Amino acid sequence: MNKTRVFSFAFALLSIPALLGTVAAPEAAAAHGASADAVAATAPAAVLTAANELQGYFTPESPDVPAKLTVPKKAPKVAIADTSETTGTALVLLDSLAVKKQKSDRKYDRVKKFGVAWLDVGGRGCDTRNEVLARDLTEVKAKGCQVLSGKLSDPYLGAKLDFARGDETSSLVQVDHIVSLRNAWQTGAQKLSQAQRESLANDPLNLRAVNGASATIKDGRNAADWLPENTAYRCEYVAQQVSVKATYDLWVTKAEKAAMKKVLSKCAKEPAQSSPFTPKLKESSSSDSQTTKAPATTAPAPEPAPAPVPEPAPEVVPEPEPVAPEPAPEPAVTGVNPGGFCSTPGVVGTAANGRSYTCGGNGPDANGKYHWNK
């Protein structure tokens, strides 16, 4: 980094409090009980200003693609051993989460505790950042695995953004953790294994391509302190947070749960979502093993009866073959989560942004699970 860029970066960091004055004050108010709605209501101007000042820089939690790909030592592993598939509504699932106080983040370390970013989880020679960009962007142009350009419908601001890979432009679109790794560390991830934490950091359920400035401002805040400016996305955003916390056995604070319930009460039917890392359940064969055949018994053969004199059989006119009814059309699926778990390969669904996705469009993953793909 040359002297000019060092100076620019230092100036940007020093200028953030002033540039985000319309955000910082409400955030401070939120910390003392003010609603997160009031915080987000003043965000757009500050977000755009911050985007200009922070151009060319990534956050420690959401860095650029790595210089060298690293394959994790263990396969993706969610917190619950038998199944972490979350079904039903997010509002009902929220009530299953434990409510506790937030722990200290003193020992939080992104690389040591959650793995090098970004890992090549599938062992396909592609890092998580590029996989998410390819999933969330449209009009994607790529060179092999690396996404070079595309268009983003940013869910946090509800704005259209152009993405172009480059030293000064890549960080304008970042891959954000829906439940930040710092917040996860403070709400239960400390008791997870290293493999589980690395899975959480690279789980498609917990990742979304967004504008870089919003990701920077959000930082490690939970739903009580920060919500997307785009109100149309809040239901899905909170539903994803609830689903991630349920999948990885994380808890919520009292204020966080109240904020989540306030959002979800306006969309009570918002579905919970499942991680593609959820282990595939094995069908039980216990009922087969318990089934025994009764011993065969031999009955004495009856005396043969005298053969009757056959009468001529009447001519039988065969009835026409029944015509099978036309199969009912496959029902359309709406509100799908791109990259999320699905059960019926070939079914076409529509996401909240209006784009079409096919269940299992790219075939099953390493665990035999299907996902919504373009």
Rank of each mutant, 00 (worst) to 15 (best):
R5T: 00
G166D: 07
K74P: 02
G368N: 13
G354M: 10
S199A: 10
V347A: 13
Q194E: 14
N222F: 03
A195T: 11
E319L: 01
D288L: 07
K100W: 00
N367Q: 12
V116C: 15
K141H: 01
A307D: 12
A215E: 10
T187R: 06
H32P: 01
V23N: 08
A352Y: 13
T86S: 08
S265F: 08
C359M: 13
V238L: 07
T292F: 02
L119S: 12
G166M: 03
K151H: 06
N362F: 14
Q102Y: 02
N367S: 14
L192H: 15
A184P: 12
V317G: 01
A45R: 11
E321F: 15
A43C: 13
A18D: 05
Q240C: 10
V323E: 07
Q174A: 15
C267M: 10
L200Y: 06
A232Y: 08
T59C: 06
Q240W: 08
E229N: 13
Y156Q: 05
R197V: 07
K103Y: 05
K113N: 11
A328M: 12
D219H: 04
A307H: 09
K262F: 01
A332Q: 15
K160S: 10
K254N: 08
R221P: 06
K73C: 04
K266P: 11
A255N: 12
V263L: 08
E139C: 00
K73I: 01
L97H: 13
P318N: 02
C126M: 03
P63F: 01
L281I: 12
A184Y: 11
R182S: 00
N373D: 14
L14R: 13
V23Y: 01
A223F: 04
E283Y: 08
Y233Q: 02
T86F: 06
C235G: 12
K160D: 06
L172H: 15
L69D: 02
A34M: 02
W372N: 14
T334M: 12
A268H: 14
A81C: 05
A164E: 15
